[in-house]
């Protein structure tokens, strides 16, 4: 990991430094430090309850929605050098810049068009031409445009599960985020829709930095550049994905990767 940190020190989009997180009195994340490379896919893997989703949610301050949750440490966003989890930072603004795509597609009960335009309207953009352009760009970015361009005003729920998930990705892309967070984005999808989303993730990293939580180890292997293995709220090992899947250094990682536990 030390070699790696040196090699990538100039290419970071974000850097987690000594992050602790508490659900009330319960400490869910323990002293996590992790570099997040710019325009790369970082995967978080580990058994259920290891803290990977908790960790992901720190990046867009999702935990602020519940009282009693507490962060310690820093998540620095580059190049601005701001600490995402600082109380001085507005979580709403952070969520515009760091968007999340969830396990189950959750489109709004609105048209395809309005789902994508929503974030822009919240930001006060109402110019029809600008909205049209941004909606098309986002839908193209999410590889959905060709399938929906003739039915933009249909209700989003009329789309298939895989299409709905890509719509959610388009919605996330519309506000031009710096980081995209994926929380098990394909666990509710069939294999064909899954592979479309995976292809999309690989394509999207040309534009945006991605962090993905997945239970599917092969998915982490397929889409990510680096992988962090988490266990009991800690990062046990972090390295190039290829290294993690061929020759992990820690015994615990090896046991998990090879399906001996978890």
């Amino acid at each position: 990991m030390s070699e790696m940190s040196i090699a990538i020190s100039e290419k970071l989009k974000s850097e987690v430094k000594n992050l602790n997180f508490y659900y009330g009195a319960v400490q869910a994340l323990k002293n996590i430090s992790l570099p997040i490379e710019r325009r790369k896919v970082t995967a978080l893997i580990g058994p259920s309850g290891c803290g990977k989703t908790t960790f992901l949610r720190c990046f867009n301050r999702m935990h602020d929605l519940y009282p009693g949750n507490r962060y310690e440490g820093e998540i620095i966003l580059y190049p601005d050098n701001i600490n995402i989890i600082s109380t001085e930072i507005d979580p709403i603004e952070i969520r515009m810049q760091i968007s999340m795509v969830f396990q189950k597609p959750n489109p709004f009960p609105k048209s395809i068009y309005e789902n994508v335009a929503y974030g822009l309207r919240v930001r006060g953009i109402n110019n029809k031409q600008i909205l049209n352009e941004r909606v098309e760009k986002s839908l193209r970015g999410a590889a959905l445009w060709e399938e929906v361009k003739d039915r933009l005003h249909d209700l989003a729920f009329e789309l298939s599960g895989g299409q709905q998930q890509r719509l959610c990705i388009a919605r996330a892309l519309a506000t031009d985020p710096r980081i995209l967070l994926f929380d098990e984005p394909t666990s509710a999808l069939d294999p064909t829709a899954t592979s479309k989303i995976e292809e999309l993730i690989i394509e999207l990293k040309n534009e945006v930095t991605i962090i993905i939580v997945t239970h599917n180890m092969q998915q982490a292997a397929r889409v990510s550049d680096s992988t962090a293995f988490m266990y009991l709220g800690e990062i046990i090992e972090f390295d190039r994905t290829e290294k993690i899947f061929t020759a992990p250094t820690k015994k615990l990682t090896e046991e998990y990767i090879t399906g001996r536990f978890g």
Binding site: M217, I244, F245, T246, E254, T258, G259
Partner: peptide, 9 residues
């Protein structure tokens, strides 16, 4: 089996 890590090696 899609072997990984030491199994793959």
């Amino acid at each position: 089996r899609q072997p990984r890590a030491r199994d793959l090696r």
